[in-house]
Design a binder for these strands. Sequence first.
DNA 1: TGATTTAGTGAGTAACTACTCACTTTTATA
DNA 2: TATAAAAGTGAGTAGTTACTCACTAAATCA
Lengths: 216, 216
Amino acid sequence: MSEQNLLDVMIARTKLSKKQTDKQQKIVEAAIRIFAEKGYSNTSTSEIAQAAGVAEGTIFRHFGTKDNLLLSVILPFLKEWVPVMAEDVFQEIMSEEASFEDFVRALIKNRIAFIKENKEVFQVVVKEFLYNEELRKELFPHLSESIGSRLTNVLQRFQARGELADIPIDRLKRMLISFVGAQFVSRFVLLPEIQDLDEDAEVEAIVKFIMNGIGK
Amino acid sequence: MSEQNLLDVMIARTKLSKKQTDKQQKIVEAAIRIFAEKGYSNTSTSEIAQAAGVAEGTIFRHFGTKDNLLLSVILPFLKEWVPVMAEDVFQEIMSEEASFEDFVRALIKNRIAFIKENKEVFQVVVKEFLYNEELRKELFPHLSESIGSRLTNVLQRFQARGELADIPIDRLKRMLISFVGAQFVSRFVLLPEIQDLDEDAEVEAIVKFIMNGIGK
DNA sequence: TGATTTAGTGAGTAACTACTCACTTTTATA
DNA sequence: TATAAAAGTGAGTAGTTACTCACTAAATCA
């Protein structure tokens, strides 16, 4: 992977994001589609060029390396993922006197909507996050900082209010993230062919599981 | 991937499993190590040969193709995974008058022990299951049949006993598997560097989450 | 022991890989 | 409109890939 700091690339890419060529966009779209289907490592630049209706050289004119093309797919998604986590859900909900259950439900619905809008990129992110150790090691600290710390605050507040069981915050956080994450991964990556049979009911079941478990 | 039926390969490999050469074993061991670290697609046969202290031709003498080598890594693991799921835990526990909580605890402890013994292969299986669509499509039916149906029986019995919430079995099953699976994946694949800080407490937290959720 | 099968080798190969570069075409600017 | 800059091209390149095959070494069997 790229040796330079990912945050720098992230910022640089944002500045350039306004002036994007037609073909540049076609390349990214094709890359997303094929990366999602077969994985980054199993995709050749010539295949992307063909799918995008572009000469192979054009890819390298704009993105320099194949690695950079992957970043151009993943980073915009993550850049949107993180702040939306902050504003749309956290602030809005926390200002009111909402219950933890409401918070969890709103968070899950919000994230499902976002993933649905970016289904293929989500698939790429999940697959490469698991497969590409360098990428993971580079991105993990940023994600766990920006998302994790926010979640810690929220959980602490709800635990102080007495709405949560007396489990250490870190363990709570880990279980929450991995459970919800697993739902998203199994729904949108492992079994993407399944349609929304009953999305609301599914969300409700997830919320109930989190709140009350499955015992009786 | 291989065109032939995976079950046939599975059976064929079992028959041959007795007479395994020294070098054959070294190759598999090296493959497991490197596949787990960098992923199948990012590993070359020459790299495996070098790590195993073997000529590259030797790999192809024994395994024919790189795909077959991957199967020789994954299938023995799955072949052990499935029956142990049946005997060690299911039968033993179900014969007694154990509670659902006992069952879950025993199941999780048993699976953790098995994964610990086969940590690297587990990593390979998880990564390739997500990355390699053909492999997933081939293996998924067998796994969901042998494991899923057994779990369905167990859940039905406990639900009939009134120990479980009135959630449709399929949804129960999906949530249970994805939650427990997520714990294993995050523990042994995403964050393998973390040691057993307090494994019993962690297992207990997982069990409690499943039984009672995190609400109060 | 001699003969046959099996294990092991490593140089060789065709296909593919990411990437380059001299060139043409299009766009922006003066 | 003339000029400079940027976008786009595709044949070419050096390196790597999975895999082959003629061969030698070791094990098995008569």
